[in-house]
Amino acid sequence: MASIRQFQVTFDCAEPERVARFWCEVLGYVGPPAPEEFATWDDSARSLPPEQEAAAFVCVDPSGVGPRLFFQRVPEGKVVKNRLHLDVRVGTGLVGEERLATLDAECARLVAIGAVRVRLLPADEDNESCIVMQDIEGNEFCLD
């Protein structure tokens, strides 16, 4: 049986391009080039029926290692806690005050681009500290 080596993470959202650009900034991802027949993504969007304009956006890891992120417009807003969330790994291998300082610095950077700090989950016997946050549409993620 073959195993899956690639996957895509899909976000339901109200404003796909805005949320995608936020995550590009968080992760160092980029938008893919416009389709070959168009000079820009705006030109491509203008070729679509109005109901399909700005309905989706993609961002990719420029190194090709991380998963593709797909953002699709949905009519309903977020109501409850995510059943799945991303852990943004900025403190790997760090402990104690050094870890907290690194998490706090990244948290400040992300708050400046629209994220919301929710709470610090302090270290315990099993886990190091992490910071629970929300993206610009309220989707939870952790700085870990």
Rank of each mutant, 00 (worst) to 15 (best):
E15G: 01
V58E: 13
F11V: 01
G93C: 08
E15Y: 07
A101K: 09
F71V: 00
G28A: 03
F22D: 03
V19I: 06
G138Y: 04
Q134E: 15
F11L: 07
K81W: 10
N82L: 08
R89K: 08
A105W: 09
G138C: 07
N139H: 14
D87S: 02
V116F: 02
V118I: 14
T10Q: 12
S63C: 09
C130I: 06
A115D: 13
T102L: 05
D124P: 01
E51A: 06
V65D: 10
G96H: 09
L94R: 11
E98I: 07
A101L: 02
T92I: 03
L86E: 14
F7M: 10
E128M: 12
L143A: 11
W23M: 09
V88G: 02
E128K: 07
I113K: 08
L103Q: 04
A45Q: 15
R109C: 00
V26Y: 07
P33D: 05
S3R: 07
M1F: 08
E125F: 09
Q8W: 14
L103S: 00
A108D: 15
A56K: 03
L48K: 13
D42Q: 15
V26P: 01
A108W: 00
L121Y: 15
T40I: 02
S63F: 05
A14H: 08
V95K: 05
A39G: 07
I4A: 04
F38Q: 06
E137C: 05
R83C: 06
P35G: 12
A14P: 05
L110N: 04
N127R: 09
E53I: 10
L48G: 06
R99W: 09
L110E: 04
Q72R: 10
F71Q: 00
C59S: 15
A20I: 00
D12M: 03
P35W: 06
L143G: 11
P122N: 02
Q52D: 11
P32Q: 09
F71K: 00
V9K: 01
G93D: 13
E51D: 14
Q52Y: 15
V132C: 05
G31S: 13
F141V: 08
G114V: 00
R89E: 15
C13K: 01
L110P: 00
D43W: 08
V30C: 12
P32R: 04
G28T: 01
F57V: 06
D126C: 09
W23F: 03
K78V: 09
A101G: 13
T10A: 14
W41L: 07
F7G: 09
M1G: 15
Q6I: 00
E37M: 10
K81F: 11
V60W: 11
R68D: 15
L84S: 14
V88T: 01
E53A: 05
V116C: 01
R68E: 15
S129C: 06
D61F: 12
S3H: 07
R18F: 12
V116M: 08
I136L: 12
T92E: 11
P62Q: 08
L94T: 01
G66E: 12
L103P: 00
V79T: 09
A2M: 07
E17W: 14
Y29L: 01
E106V: 04
G91I: 03
L121A: 12
E125C: 01
L84F: 12
L69A: 02
E76Y: 05
T10G: 10
R109S: 04
